[in-house]
Nucleic acid binder design. Structure first.
Length: 508
RNA sequence: GCCCCGGUAGUGUAGUCCGGUCCAGCAUGAGGGACUCUCGAUCCCUCGACCCGGGUUCAAAUCCCGGCCGGGGCACCA
């Protein structure tokens, strides 16, 4: 073999790994790869969060590691509120994406751990309880790089204050624990950050059991170690938090998990706002958390966006820390690649213009169109041409009707060629049967729908609007979850069939 | 004001760490064509980029300096 055709061996050797993404750093430092997904449960995962999820899941699978789902459900703030239903919605999104979670952890179950470390840090004089007013602290101390009086308090006094935080002596905002990262740090963002504070808000899972809650940088400084996380892939909005985490790891001499940041994702053709979505869902303006305008994973699933299409598109973005502005088009392109072959074709006409058909030979009683043009063996759809009171009426899209002049030759696909007559009542005069005529003379080929036997279909568009279209009779055999292509219109998924067939539009 | 990060075709990405094989690869997009009874799919062609200026070097997208531009942080949010 090597002697006869060595070039074959060579190409074989060069093909192997098409891994688009780089290796994770410092793999040799870790016995096994442990990563985590840390969503804040304020709503379902949307397409913007998909990057975080897919990246982590990808690497865990690549290295046969472990993936921990950590609901980052600390108390949040007035604007960032834990939404009870979000826990399940998030899980649902992960299932859709095919993410395999090995363990699930709730931050809100771990307060005692954080308390233990808080006390320890106070005892080590690495943290202190500060009762300064936040604004005063910022202006008088942080900006001036000066230590506030609380910073030099004794361990005993700090511990006493800590107890007062826990027992309710201090009101909300009355005191907070600060980590001594250094008041002289050149970066103002790094000066003695608050790591625990008081909140009396009710928590959906643990109620009012706790009134002192950790901040993200502290809870993760502890938990990334406690949970044995080896690699952290997160948005670059968290780099400051990463630095504070490292500070904590150094206090305890813990091994540093590898930190990898990716840039912010903006969508050119979608505006993402979880808080706006929540409002609109609550107000009933959106149909629910699967409304296309939420861009939730649920909404993509409803539209028949295959998870692999999303996954591919997200992985193609790589791991760059640069902020990027992307389009949904690559996702749609991938989805088409995956689903085109399976999608049966149908005619669907929005706002039809009805034409009286004249001169069609009587022996033409039905049209036959392929279920899928690339797979003739899947058979044909039959569209019966039933006369009403002796005359036949067919509908064509208004858009096409309006853009064609009187006397235009056109073809109704899989039926015949006609001359358009635009004087009322609108009609079409049979011209010829053969498609080659159109090919020779030019003229557009339209989809169309019969007046008598059509099927009403409600299509929910990406912008939230609902359009009613009329489809050919074979639409009656559609089932929920079918992904179809309406010729010249676009792809969509049947999501419900009751009195109406309902389709969520996916893309062109 | 102070800190940090980054700038490759319209968009996204590979290459940048360890300078040459990069007159820069890929995807998507756009334009054109072939084929197809869809505005889908498939096939072919074309368009189009290393932020700027210096420096180092035989050689720089890759290293150094300066500038410009962009993003982010400076919350008792995540």
């Amino acid at each position: 073999m090597r002697r006869i055709a060595p070039e074959l061996l060579d190409t074989e050797n060069e093909v192997p790994d098409e891994k688009g993404l780089p290796e994770l750093p410092n793999l040799d430092k870790w016995d096994h790869i442990v990563m985590r997904l840390a969503p804040f449960p304020s709503g379902p995962l949307h397409i913007g969060n998909a990057r975080m999820v897919i990246l982590n899941d990808y690497y865990v699978k690549r290295y046969n590691g472990e993936l921990i789902l950590v609901y980052d459900d600390t108390i949040g703030s007035d604007i960032k509120v834990v939404e009870p239903e979000a826990y399940d919605l998030i899980k649902e999104g992960l299932d859709y994406l095919g993410v395999n979670v090995h363990k699930t952890v709730y931050k809100s179950d771990r307060l005692e751990i954080f308390y233990k470390y808080a006390v320890d840090l106070i005892k080590r004089q690495k943290a202190y309880v500060c009762d300064c007013d936040a604004e005063i602290w910022r202006n008088e101390y942080k900006i001036q790089k000066k230590a506030c009086p609380c910073r030099s308090l004794s361990v005993e006094e700090n511990l006493a204050r800590w107890e007062k935080m826990l027992d309710g002596t201090y009101p909300e905002r009355g005191a907070a624990v600060r980590l001594k990262t250094g008041m002289d740090d050149p970066d103002p963002a790094m000066r003695d950050h608050v790591i625990l504070r008081i909140s009396e808000s009710e928590h959906p899972r643990v109620g009012s059991k706790y009134r002192v809650w950790p901040l993200l940088e502290f809870s993760w400084g502890i938990d990334d170690h406690e949970l044995g996380i080896s690699h952290i892939i997160r948005g670059k909005d968290l780099v400051k938090e990463g630095k504070i985490e490292q500070h904590i790891w150094d206090i305890y001499g813990w091994k540093h998990p590898e930190l990898i940041y990716y840039g912010r994702l903006r969508f050119q053709d979608a505006s993402l706002s979880k808080s706006k979505s929540r409002q609109e869902v609550k107000d009933g303006i959106y149909t629910g958390w699967d409304d296309p305008r939420t861009w939730s994973l649920q909404s993509l699933a409803k539209r028949g966006i295959h998870p692999d299409a999303l996954r591919k598109a997200m992985l193609d973005l790589g791991l760059s820390i640069v902020d990027i502005s992307i389009s949904m088009k690559p996702v749609y392109s991938e989805n088409r690649k995956i689903r085109d072959a399976e999608s049966p074709r149908l005619f669907l006409v929005f706002s039809p213009v009805w034409l009286n058909i004249n001169g069609l030979p009587d022996d033409i009683t039905k049209a036959k169109a392929p279920v899928h043009p690339d797979f003739p063996d899947r058979g044909v759809r039959e569209i019966p041409l039933e006369r009403e009171n002796g005359s036949l009426t067919l509908g064509i899209p208004k858009k096409d009707f309006e853009s064609m002049g009187d006397g235009t030759l056109f073809r109704m696909k899989d039926l015949a060629n006609f001359i358009l007559h635009k004087n009322e009542p609108y009609s079409a005069e049979f011209h010829s049967k053969d498609v080659d005529v159109i090919r020779e003379k030019g003229g557009r080929i339209l989809h169309w729908v019969p007046h008598k036997t059509n099927v009403e279909i409600e299509v929910s568009m990406v912008d939230g609007s609902l359009l009613t279209g009329l489809a050919e009779p074979s639409a009656r055999s559609l089932k929920v979850d079918d992904f179809v292509q309406f010729e010249r219109v676009g792809f969509g998924r049947v999501y419900s069939i009751d009195e109406k067939i309902k389709v969520a539009f996916a893309h062109k």
